[in-house]
Amino acid sequence: MKILLAGDSTVAACPSYEYPMSGWGAHLAPETYWWAAVHNFAKGGATTESFREEGLWYQLLNQTVKGDLVLIQFGHNDQKREHLAARTGYDGNLRRMAAEVRAKGGVPVLCTSVERRHFSNGRLDTTLGEYPAVVRELGAELELDVLDLNQWTRALYQEMGEEGSKELFFHFAPGEHAHWAGGLEDNTHFHVKGAQRIAAFVAGELESLGYGLAATVNAGVRV
C-alpha cells in the first residue's frame, strides 16, 4: 500500500532554503513508514485546478494502484479564485478527483484545509469560509472518509492560545533567517514543529479508520 498526497504548500515538502518551514505531508512518512510508503505530490500555490493543469494530478494517478490511499487537501488557494468557489468549481474538481482515484482502484480520503492562525481580540478567526463544510458534505454524500484537519487545527490553536500557537508557525525576527533577512510572521505556513504535530494526527486518524497494517493484508477492501 502507498499513501499519495495531493495538496498545496501546507501539505508540501518545502525547499531546503526555506527550512524550517514545512508542510505536514513531509513528515507523514516517519509516522507511517512501518506500513506504507508516502509519495508527496503537493505543491505550494496549488489549487484543485492548477494541480491538474500542471500535470501533478496525472503523475499521482499514474502511480496509484488498487488499495492505495490518496489524501486530498486543497482550499487555501482555491479560495483566491472566483471560479473555484467552494460550491462550484472547488466542489466539482474534488468530485472528479475522487471518481478518478476510485476508477484506479485507489481509496480517496478528503481532508479539510488546515486553519490559518488569525486571532482577533483573543479569538480565533474563521478564514476558510465554506470550503471545510463542502469537504465534509462531499465525504458524506460520496461515502468517503474525511480527515477534518480544519476542526482539529482550530481546536489546537485555541488550546495553545494566541501566543503559544505561534511556535507552530513560521515566525522569524529580522536577521534570524538567511532567506527572510528582514524577518517574517507567517500564520499560514508551518514551522517543522507544527507540521510534525499535524502529521502525527493524520497518521493516528488513518490508523483509527482501519488503514493501518491490517489493511495491507487485504488491500482495496475499503474501495
Rank of each mutant, 00 (worst) to 15 (best):
A36L: 07
A36W: 03
A36E: 08
A37Y: 10
A37N: 14
A37E: 15
A37C: 10
H39L: 14
H39R: 15
H39T: 12
H39Y: 14
N40V: 03
N40D: 10
N40I: 00
F41H: 14
F41C: 09
F41Y: 15
A42S: 14
A42C: 06
K43Y: 14
K43N: 11
G44A: 12
G44K: 08
G44I: 01
G45E: 10
G45V: 12
A46K: 08
A46H: 08
A46M: 08
A46S: 15
A46N: 10
T47G: 05
T47L: 03
T48E: 05
T48M: 00
E49T: 08
E49Q: 13
S50H: 07
S50A: 10
S50F: 06
S50N: 12
S50V: 05
F51W: 01
F51T: 01
F51N: 05
R52N: 06
R52W: 06
R52F: 06
R52M: 07
R52V: 14
E53D: 15
E53A: 15
E53L: 15
E54T: 14
G55Y: 05
G55R: 12
G55W: 05
G55C: 09
L56M: 10
L56V: 02
L56I: 02
L56K: 12
W57M: 05
Y58A: 11
Y58C: 00
Y58D: 15
Q59L: 03
Q59P: 04
Q59H: 06
L60W: 02
L60S: 06
L61A: 04
L61Q: 02
L61K: 01
N62M: 03
N62T: 01
N62D: 09
N62S: 14
Q63V: 00
Q63C: 06
Q63D: 06
Q63G: 13
V65Q: 11
G67S: 10
G67I: 01
G67C: 07
G67D: 08
G67K: 00
D68N: 13
D68H: 09
D68E: 07
D68R: 00
D68L: 05
D68P: 11
D68G: 07
L69C: 09
L69T: 06
L69V: 12
V70T: 01
V70L: 02
L71W: 04
L71Y: 03
L71I: 12
L71N: 04
I72L: 05
I72P: 01
Q73E: 15
Q73L: 06
Q73G: 11
Q73R: 00
Q73C: 13
Q73S: 15
F74I: 00
G75S: 01
G75N: 02
G75A: 01
G75R: 05
G75D: 00
H76D: 07
H76I: 07
N77P: 10
D78L: 09
Q79I: 07
Q79S: 14
Q79V: 06
Q79A: 15
K80T: 15
K80E: 10
R81W: 07
R81M: 11
R81D: 05
E82Y: 12
E82I: 09
H83R: 08
L84R: 00
L84D: 03
L84Y: 04
L84Q: 00
A85F: 04
A86N: 13
A86Q: 14
A86E: 14
R87G: 09
R87W: 14
T88V: 12
T88A: 13
T88P: 02
T88S: 15
G89F: 01
